[in-house]
Amino acid sequence: MKKILEKRETGVFLILLLLCLGLSLYSPSFLSYTNIKNVLVNSVPVGIMAAGMTIVLITAGIDVSVASQMMFSATWLAIFSQNSSMANPVTVLILALVLGAITGAINGFLIAAFSIPPIIITLGTASIYRGIILVYTNGRWIMNIPKWFTALGKTYYNIPLPIIYAIIIFLITAWILRHTYFGRSVYAVGGNENAARYVGVNIKKTIFLTYFYSGLLCGFAGFVLDAILGNCQPSGSNGWEMNAIAAAVIGGTNILGGSGSVIGTVIGVAMMGVIENGLVVAHIPTYWQKLVYGLIIIATVTFDVLRRNYADSKKQMIEIDQEA
């Protein structure tokens, strides 16, 4: 019990509950099924990307290309589903994962093989992936995604499919982080890279797999996005990478590496969805969002860094004889 209370996730969860409570008192429509469903469904693509981002951040890396990777996948899927006779739910899903695997593998290779700051590489590849789809589509929207495709994003028996997808992804990611050698290596690399080397963790392989997995999830997020929206705007979802980062950081993932959890990120995603919805409900313009998220990121990072600096300075102290 004490352990649960100590976790940052718990605090964030409590704040989330309070927020929900306040909003439902302010406006009864907040608690309506439709509203909650909308909040959750709209958060799914970012949520899926945030799951991958969590793993990346735990290794002390970052991936600012996730939104571009997602749109890369979404655009090709939309085109494929409209034009190919082979298009069906299975092939589309496979293509989504393949596309995500390609973009993720490119990121992972460049970062792991050359040890270049990940933010620089992913900034570059973000612009490449986005550039490719923009050049191909000339920036035009792709409308009228086939019915069978959008059916995959609908609600059945009051259960929205996208939410199911998100839950599956969260469970898989949490399982990987908790129960696989790779998952534990992620924590090891982020916690103490040198020590990880001493216990035989293959650092480069771990880092490659991290970005590969993040790419895979982005590919899948593109699939979900198409299914939900029914159209695809190649230049869309700009800046969503920041939302994914913010969700993970709000949920307690340390941007300096070493700690974080999927459950925390889920809470973070929900929190962001609620804030967004709350602003609408409270008639506060949505542009306040970015300011709030920016402040939250700055504040949590500052806190983490100060804590680390304090621990470091304590470590360097020596024991002094009390009497001369």
Partner: peptide, 23 residues
Amino acid sequence: LSLFPNLSVAENIYLGRSKNGKV
């Protein structure tokens, strides 16, 4: 010491072993 401050005692002792990639 080359340990991992972010992990549990048990895992610090255990890390480096795995069976088929699973923990």
